[in-house]
């Protein structure tokens, strides 16, 4: 994939990281990983449990320090002395898996104000930006003064995402934002993320297990396995390796299998189809 280097925002430069360095269960979570995020792009990061994706994610805003290698943000080394890592955490917003487990304030509104206040916005600015963020994630107005603990799972997730959006990040990183939600909540959240991508021009990195979600949204897919990056390319090209993906305990989107079966049955269809819409067009093309 050819890219405009001037749009490079964030780059992990050959980083390695090891857990429990002197303990009994020491293991290398990242081994010489290089990874880039460009302005305005949507990256899907997929991998089996324990492949190192969450570890990589925590490196991107300096929550973990790599044993080797470094991270560059806007052309600056974030581990250089005197680099403002707090400001980096504002610019690179990180939403953890099950973010509802970090809620603590008495109202949704205060919860979302927590971030902006920490990053030094004054009272009024914080409130304005919290208001805008809650609106963006599509929470209804009557939620504002509810306790975040009384909300449904999907709504709690939105509150948590809003609390990161409120600090106006340039890159939004989400660790399995749809984990543990029911199909409806999942669908709604994916739509919300899609609208964020379109309206805000944010760079988004989404860690996920679900190939369907990633295929639908991502401009680029990065596949991790055992601490290495295996593929880093357009969805179509990555999913063409579906046999290798299966060996890693992953799978290609279901539509690819459907098309493959159709082809095996003697229909002349393309097999590099990733979403249901594309599959529909392709099948209609053959039938008519």
């Amino acid at each position: 994939m050819e890219r405009d280097k001037s749009k490079l925002k964030l780059a992990a430069d050959h980083i390695s990281y090891e857990y429990d360095k002197s303990g009994a269960n020491r293991h290398k979570a990242l081994d010489d990983v290089s990874f880039e995020v460009y302005e305005g792009e949507f990256v899907g990061l997929i991998g089996h449990t324990g492949s190192g994706k969450s570890t990589l994610m925590q490196h991107l805003n300096a929550l973990l320090k790599p044993d080797q290698g470094t991270i560059w943000y806007d052309g600056q080394d974030i581990y250089e002395k005197g680099y403002d890592r707090k400001e980096l955490r504002r610019r690179v917003g990180l939403v953890f898996q099950y973010p509802e487990h970090q809620l603590f304030e008495d109202t949704v509104f205060n919860e979302v104000c927590f971030g902006p206040k920490n990053f030094g916005m004054d009272e009024k600015q914080s409130e304005l930006s919290a208001y805008a963020a809650i609106k963006k994630v599509g929470l209804p107005d009557e939620c504002f003064y509810h306790s975040p603990f009384d909300l449904s799972g999907g709504q709690k997730r939105r509150v948590a995402i809003a609390s990161v959006l409120a600090v106006k990040p340039e890159i939004l990183i989400m660790d399995e934002p749809t984990a543990g939600l029911d199909p409806k909540g999942r669908e709604e959240l994916m739509e919300m993320i899609l609208s964020l991508k379109e309206s805000e021009g944010l760079s988004i990195v989404m860690v996920s297990h679900s190939m369907e979600d990633v295929a639908k949204l991502a401009d680029r897919i990065v596949v991790m396995d055992k601490g290495h990056i295996v593929y880093d390319d357009e969805p179509r090209k990555v999913f063409a390796h579906y046999k290798e993906l299966e060996e890693m305990g992953l799978a290609a989107p279901q539509m690819m299998y459907v098309m493959q079966d159709l082809k095996d049955a003697g229909f002349d269809v393309r097999t590099d189809v990733t979403t249901i819409e594309e599959a529909k067009e392709e099948i209609l093309r053959i039938v008519t």
Binding site: Q58, N61, L63, K86, R89, R90, G93, L94, V95, F96, P99, H101, Q102, F114, G115, N118, F119, S163, V164, V167
Partner: peptide, 12 residues
């Protein structure tokens, strides 16, 4: 995990 998550939201 919680400390990291709050750090990401600017906690100090």
């Amino acid at each position: 995990r919680i400390m990291k998550a709050q750090l990401a939201r600017g906690a100090d």
